[in-house]
Design a protein around this nucleic acid. Structure first.
Lengths: 404, 404
DNA sequence: TTTGTTTGTTTAGAAGCCCAACTAAAGGCT
DNA sequence: AGCCTTTAGTTGGGCTTCTAAACAAACAAA
C-alpha cells in the first residue's frame, strides 16, 4: 500500500518511482555500505528495479560506489554509500543569548557547527533578523565555496510559530507577530531551496530522533530546559504540531496553584517551579540570576552537585520532582516511549532523573509509567539547529529528492 | 507522492491502483451522488482512469449506478453512489452498566443500534466476555440473514488496551490483563474479518470525526464523561495511541493536590473533581450516587439546571471550571482545534462550556486558547460502538478494500 | 580446469496511468 | 427538421516502471 493517509491525492507511476527511490535511500542511510543485491534482498524490490533505482540515484549524485568486496565466494559486490559531498542541509537557531548554525551533508555528517553570542532579548526583531540573515549568508557563502547545493534551511525559534513561519509569540526574544519566514526570504533574495521556521524544541526532538541513539523511537519527547521549558513531541513517528502549530507548551502546565508567579501571569506553572530561574534561586540563593548568564550558573551548579553540596542536591531533587510531575502528565496523555531531558537539563540530568522517575511512576495511571523512560539527551546546545538540518534530511528521506 | 511515511515498504502498480480506488471511494463518500466526469474533475485523475476504477468498484459491489441526470445541456451523466447493501461494519462496546452494538453499512448508514443493560462491574471477565460474544453472535446472525459481508468488528473497552488487544487495566470493569481479542476470536470461531479491541474514548473520537459535523477536523479531542474521564485524541488526522497504546488518560490530570481522593490512589485528579461522582455529590448532596445509576441522576441534574436550580448551576459551573483547567492543559500540549464533550457531559454541555472556555482562555499560553473550541459532542452513548464500526470504514477508505 | 556461488544486467512481459480522438446523447438555435 | 454546441464516457496508443527469468561476469574451492 502506498499511502494510508495521503488524503485525496491520487497516485501514478512517478509516485511509485519516488517512493522506491526513497526506500533505497533510507536503506543506504541506515545500512551503508551495501550492495545492490543487499538492497534487493532487504527491501523486497526486484534486483533489476534496484539497479535502475541506484543508477538514478548515482546520476542525481545522492549515492556513490565505493569499491568491491573481496575474498568472498561468488562475484564481488560493488558497495554503495550515500554521497554526502554535493549537498548541504542548513539549520539555524535564534535564542535569547546566542545564534547557532549547523550544516549537515546528505549522509548526516556535520560539516559546520557555529555558535555566536547575541543579545536577542535586547534587540528589536528587525535587528535580530538582520543578525540571523548575516549568519545565514556567511553559512551559505561557505557552503557555496565548497560547491555544495543547499537542500533547504530551517530556523528554530523559542516560541509559537504558525504554519506560515510567522512567530506569534516568543517571550524570551520579546517577539510578537513577527513574520520571520518572509523577512528571511527577502534578506536571502528569495532562494530556490525551501526555507522553514519552526519551534526550537520541535526541531530538537527531530535531532534527538535522528542522532540521539534511541533507535527508531516512534514516540519521543524532548524537553528543552532553559528559562522556559518547551517540549518537542514526536507521536507515531511524526512531529506533533496541533491545529495551529502551538503544541508542546510544556512549561505552562499548572503544578501548584500557590506557587510562584510565572512570566505568563499565572502562578505555579511548571517553568516557574522547575525552570532554570527557579533552580538557580534554590541552589544559589546568593546569586541574582539573569537569563543571559544561565550558562555559568549551570556550570557552578554542576560542580557543586558533583562535590555533593547538600543545598544544590536538594534544589536539583526538587526540580526533578516538579519535572517528574509534568512528565507524568505527558505520560498519561501521550504515553511516549522516552522523554529526553535537553537544553540546560542535559548536564544536570543525573541528579534530576531519579526524582523525576519516582514522580512519573507515582503519577501515571498505566503501570510502570506506561513504559515511559526518562533519559538525558545525547545532544548539546546545538540540538535545535542540528534538528533544523535534520528536518531537511527528513524531507529527502520521505521522497522529496532534489531535482537532478 | 504516494507516501511520506510508509516506512521501508516499496511500492508497485498494485499500490497505485489501491490508492486510486480509495481516492474514488472517498470522493463518493463525501460527494455522492456524482458522475465519473465529476470524479475526474475533482480528483485530477484522467477520465479514462476514473472509468476503469469505477468499473472495478462496481464489480466489487462497493459502488452502484443510480440513474441519469436530466434537463441539462450535454449528454446526461450516470450518477454513482456508494453501495452500502452488501457489506456491514460492526462496532461493540462493553461498559460498566451496558453493552452496545452498532452496525454501519459501507455508506455509513446505521443498520442497527442495540443497547442492553449489563452488570459489568459485578461480572467476572469470563462472564462479561461470554455476554459480549453472545451479543456479537446475535448481531452477526442478523447481518448474515441480510446477506451482508462483514468488513470487520471492533470492540471498545473503558480502559487501557495494548496493541495486541489485551486489556491491561479497566478499573470500572474490574479487569486486569484480560486478553479480550484472543477470547473473542475463539468465541467467534476464528473469523476471517479483522477483529480489533480499542479504548472506548479512542473509538468515540473516530465517530465524532466521521459523524460529528466538525468537518475534516484534523486535530480533535473527545472527552468521555462518566465515572472516569477518558480522552480520545486525533492529531493531524490520526488517532494518537502512544508507545504502548495507553495515551488519553485525561481523567488523572492532577488539578488540586489537596482535592478529594481518586480511585487511582492520588488526590485531586481531574476525574475526582469533575467526574460524574463529584458532580452528583455537589449537585444532589442528598443522593448517594452509585455508578450504575448515573443515568437517572444526570437526567435529574439536567432538569434542575433547566429549571435554574442555583445549587445545580453552581455544581455544573464548578465542573466546567475543572474541565476547563484540564482542557487548558490539553490545549497547551496538543493545541487541538476542537474539544468535544461526550458521554454524560453531552447533555450538560450548555452549562459546562462557558466556564470551561473561560478557564481555557485563562490557562492557555497561545492567544485565544490557541484556537481551541469547546463544543458538545453531536453523538449519544452509542458513540464508542459507532466509532468501532467507523474504524472499520476508515480502513476501507484508506485503501484496504475487501477482496472481490 | 571444472563447478558452484553470487552479482548485476538484459530482455520480455504486464500493469496501469495519461492523452487524444472518438462516440454518445442530450439541449438550443435557425 | 437539421445542425451546432455541450457534456459524458469509451477506445486505442504510448509511456513509465515494476517483475520474472535468462544470462553474463567474476571469483573461490575442489
Amino acid at each position: 500500500m502506498l499511502t494510508r493517509d495521503s488524503g485525496p491525492q491520487p497516485a501514478d507511476f512517478a509516485d511509485v518511482r519516488a517512493t522506491n527511490l526513497a526506500v533505497v535511500l533510507r536503506h543506504l542511510r541506515t545500512d551503508a555500505p551495501c550492495s545492490r543485491a543487499d538492497i534487493a534482498a532487504a527491501t523486497g524490490l526486484n534486483k533489476a528495479t534496484v539497479s535502475s533505482l541506484v543508477t538514478d540515484l548515482i546520476e542525481r549524485r545522492l549515492v556513490r560506489e565505493v569499491g568491491m568486496t573481496e575474498n568472498r565466494i561468488g562475484r564481488p559486490a560493488m558497495m554503495l554509500v550515500l554521497d554526502g559531498s554535493p549537498y548541504a542541509a542548513i539549520g539555524l537557531e535564534v535564542n535569547a543569548d546566542y545564534l547557532t548554525a549547523v550544516v549537515l551533508d546528505l549522509a548526516g555528517e556535520r560539516l559546520l557547527s557555529w555558535r555566536r553570542s547575541f543579545t536577542g532579548a535586547a534587540s528589536s526583531p528587525g535587528q535580530a533578523i538582520a543578525s540571523l540573515a548575516a549568519l545565514a549568508k556567511r553559512v551559505l557563502a561557505k557552503v557555496t565555496r565548497e560547491e555544495r547545493r543547499v537542500l533547504g534551511l530551517t530556523v528554530g525559534v523559542p516560541g509559537l510559530v504558525d504554519a506560515d513561519g510567522v512567530v506569534e509569540l516568543a517571550p524570551n526574544l520579546g517577539w510578537r507577530e513577527v513574520d520571520l519566514r518572509k523577512s528571511l526570504l527577502t534578506a536571502l533574495n528569495q532562494p530556490s531551496y525551501p526555507l522553514l521556521v519552526e519551534n526550537d524544541a520541535n526541531l530538537a526532538v527531530l535531532a534527538e530522533q535522528r542522532f540521539g541513539g534511541q533507535g527508531a523511537t516512534a514516540d519521543l519527547v524532548y524537553l528543552a530546559g532553559g528559562a522556559g521549558i518547551g517540549a518537542g513531541i514526536i507521536c507515531d513517528g511524526r512531529l506533533l504540531r496541533g491545529g495551529r502549530g502551538f503544541a508542546g507548551e510544556f512549561g505552562h502546565l499548572p503544578i501548584d496553584p500557590a506557587g510562584p508567579l510565572c512570566g505568563c501571569g499565572r502562578r505555579g506553572c511548571l517553568e516557574a517551579m522547575a525552570g532554570l530561574g527557579a533552580l538557580i534561586r534554590r541552589a544559589l540563593p546568593e546569586t541574582t540570576a539573569s537569563p543571559s548568564e544561565f550558562g555559568p550558573h549551570v556550570d557552578e551548579i554542576h560542580q557543586l552537585a558533583k562535590a555533593g553540596d547538600p543545598r544544590v542536591l536538594e534544589a536539583l531533587a526538587a526540580t526533578g520532582r516538579y519535572l517528574g510531575q509534568g512528565i507524568a502528565i505527558l505520560a498519561n496523555l501521550l504515553n511516549p516511549e522516552c522523554v529526553a531531558l535537553g537544553g540546560y537539563f542535559t548536564v544536570l540530568a543525573p541528579w534530576l532523573i531519579p526524582d523525576a522517575e519516582r514522580e512519573l511512576l507515582a503519577g501515571s495511571v498505566a503501570g510502570h509509567g506506561g513504559g515511559t523512560r526518562v533519559i538525558a539527551s545525547a545532544l548539546d546546545s546545538s540540538a535545535p539547529a542540528a534538528g533544523g538540518a535534520a528536518h531537511i534530511l527528513d524531507a529527502i528521506d520521505a521522497g522529496a529528492l532534489p531535482t537532478p
